[in-house]
Amino acid sequence: MIVAERKPFDEIFANAGKHHKVLLLGCGTCVTVCMAGGQKETGVLASQLRLASREKGVDLEVTEHTITRQCDAEFFDDTTSRLVEESDAVISMGCGVGVQFCSDRYPNKTVYPALNTEFFGATLEQGVWTERCAGCGQCIVDKFGGICPVARCSKSLLNGPCGGSADGRCEINPDVDCAWQKIYDHMETLGRVDELEEIQPLKDWSHNRDGGPRTVRKEDVRL
C-alpha cells in the first residue's frame, strides 16, 4: 500500500485559514489502512480545525466527507461533487495521487494536501509501516532472496553490501536493517548464496521514474 503521514497541523491550518469553508476529503483505501487519511483521521483533523479556528478566532467552516478511493473517478459521486462545489477549497486526506486526482477533477478549486506521502510499504505491526518497494518498474527481487536492494539498501547497491554494514544494521541508522545482510541470510537459508557471485549489470533505470512519468495501458480491458 501507499504509506503516508499527516502533515504538521500548523501547515494544514495555515492553508485552511485562507478560506472560509473547506471540505476535508478522506480516502478509504491505502491511507485508511496506514491510519493517516481515512474516515477516522478525517474526523480527528476536522475536530482539530474546528477547535483551532474557534480558539484563534478564525472564521472557518469545516465539512468532512470520505470516499472509497480518491484515485478513481467513479468514487467522486454527485454528493462529493456537490460538497466540493459548496466549499471554497478542498483539503485532501488522500496520498499525493489522490490530491492530484481531486485537483484535476475540480479545476476551479484549490486542493491542499493534508498528508506527506512516504512510500510503498507494508505493515510490520500495528502502527508501524516500512518501505518495501521503490516502484523501479523492473522487479528483480528473485535474484536477492525476495529482498529488494533498490528499495531497502540505502545506496541501492546491487552487488553486495557497502563497508557500512555492521551487525546486520545499516550505517545510516542503527534502526535500519542492512538489506544485504538480510539478502545474504535469506539466500543462505535457500542454499543459493553462490548466486550472489553473479555480477549484476548496470540497472536500466528507464523503467523507473528516471524515464519520465509512467503510464500503464492494458489494452484488453480498455473501453
Binding site: 552487488n159 553486495g160 549484476q200 549489470p201 548496470l202
Partner: peptide, 8 residues
C-alpha cells in the same frame, strides 16, 4: 545518485 554501484 547511486545510478550504479562500485562494482558496476
Amino acid at each position: 545518485v547511486f545510478d550504479m554501484d562500485s562494482i558496476q
